[in-house]
Design a protein around this nucleic acid. Structure first.
Lengths: 295, 295
DNA sequence: TAGCAACTATGAAAACTATTCATTGGTTGT
DNA sequence: ACAACCAATGAATAGTTTTCATAGTTGCTA
């Protein structure tokens, strides 16, 4: 029967290259590891590695186990952590995943009252996912996913929590600042700043420029929202951001929001949660607060 | 440190309701379980349950652990199974998930040469998923998902492997049998058989009837493809199925395929795999065979 | 309300398992 | 050929889990 220790040993061997080194890092002797795996190999009847010279080579079965170890160990380790949290009187932690760059400020406004209301619950926000936010939700890396692109998948439920309009931000000195709306063609002469994600995930391309077969004079990538706004204020280019965000900065920076197309670009923020388990009380509470959010 | 045994105990307690019963089912004494959890509780500083009368009630923390146990234990149990398989000289098992009812016959045609070519690899097909095929892929319940509805998600890659046309099947005695094509309106007088899944997942509704604002005289659900064909042959109603499937039965049953609309209803079968790990050799091989499949 | 059945908790002893110690034998590099 | 590594192994030891025996609680019922 495979136990947690077996997986740990395998992981260490893989990382450190030798039984002896792995043993040291686990505060055990080389002998202990050797015995422990000999036993596992006898029980299962499978060789997990073989010696090649003074090196250890994992067999096919060993590689399989290693792969699973790397996947499962972090999940087991989390169990310990969470129990410790419970011990400290913390009710748990709300792990939020963000797939929506400018939503960060919106999130802050929701998190603030949440923290006040739920003293025992910590909030953690992850913005980078190796395999995407959806995978993170499925794998219990996060509990809530904030995204503008919901997907209908069994096991995950998305609910809209906030409507807003995506607008073009330009410097007050920019020629476009006098317009009330802007056409796709008008952007052909502008430098466009966006977050560094795939074009397909950027509304300005997917729902505005590409349908009209247009493109900006130049497309530059900026990660930080504040920097983007500074660049726009200096009239180095234009960007697309939520209207409420532009409004927040309008007093402190010489920028102006211009509607994209005649009808504007309406957007929604969605929250996604797993539906295969009863959501905890504080997740429901977060939902309520998110729905109440206003700008 | 939480070990596998703790999760097992928790799961049994939840299922059987008492320590004593759980102990019996695990071939241990009640005392053992009591000690074992007392230790865990002392180490973590968290109470996992409390006695209420002669019953055991899980605390918040206990419920959390139980939930994780139900999720993680099956994955651990699989590790043992797979090692045993390796011992028997089997290279592993290809676990295929199907989200495409009529594709079963197509799958058989691919599996046949696969089994011949890969003697050591077993094939297992799952057709029911509690939380959907996508979740099953993420959770390593299956290795390949066969579906007509691919979704663009990081961590999963879908590739089209087979094109076909979805057609209406009618009895040769049915009035529609003389037509070469059929309009949505024409179905208003027919009983329609489909698989028992949500309407949104049935192309005949999503891409044919609903856009034309039509509906069949009656909608009846049948699970088994063969039964469906028998019912159609007896002119109890009509159904939509892949053309290649209808062709296979055309000689043995009095049925006829009729094109849906002027252009027909083109469909594709996609295979989805996880991209966060190197696919094993036999998964790649299965892909190749799937691409070669012809009817 | 006394008695009984069903259950859990606990300390001490027993059984079992994991770990170490001490040693061997193999490989690599100088 | 020797030193430096490294893994495997048997026997001894340390450590942990499990049992046994027993006490204590609850809920039912006669």
């Amino acid at each position: 029967m495979i136990e947690r220790i077996h997986l740990k040993i395998l992981r260490e061997i893989d990382q450190l290259g030798s039984l002896t080194a792995a043993a040291k890092s686990l505060h055990l002797t080389q002998s202990a590891l050797s015995h422990s795996f000999k036993k596992l190999e006898n029980q299962s009847g499978t060789q997990l590695w073989h010696k090649k010279g003074r090196q250890i080579h994992l067999t096919q079965a060993g590689k399989f186990l290693l792969n699973e170890a790397n996947r499962l160990l972090p999940q087991m380790e989390r169990l310990d952590e969470v129990l410790l949290q419970y011990a400290k009187g913390e009710r748990g932690a709300l792990r939020i995943g963000m797939e929506c760059h400018p939503c960060y400020r919106w999130l802050l406004k929701v998190v603030e009252p949440f923290l006040a209301e739920w003293e025992g619950v910590d909030v953690d926000v992850k913005q980078k996912f190796q395999f995407g936010g959806m995978a993170a939700l499925f794998n219990h890396e996060i509990d809530i996913l904030v995204t503008p692109d919901p997907l209908e998948i069994k096991g995950i439920k998305f609910s809209p929590v906030f409507d807003y309009e995506q607008v073009l931000v330009v410097a007050t000195t920019n020629a476009l600042a006098t317009h009330t709306t802007v056409s796709p063609e008008a952007l052909s002469n502008e430098v466009l700043f966006t977050y560094p994600v795939e074009k397909e995930r950027l509304d300005i391309f997917k729902n505005f420029l590409i349908p009209a077969n247009c493109q900006p004079k130049k497309h530059k990538l900026i990660e930080a929202t504040e920097m983007m706004l500074q660049m726009v204020a200096a009239d180095r280019g234009v960007a697309t951001l939520p209207l409420w965000l532009v409004n927040e900065y309008q007093d402190s920076l010489p920028i102006k929001a211009v509607r994209l197309g005649d009808k504007g670009l309406p957007k929604k923020i969605y929250l996604g949660i797993r539906t295969n388990e009863e959501p905890t009380e504080y997740i429901r509470a977060f939902f309520k607060l998110a729905l109440k959010s206003k700008f």
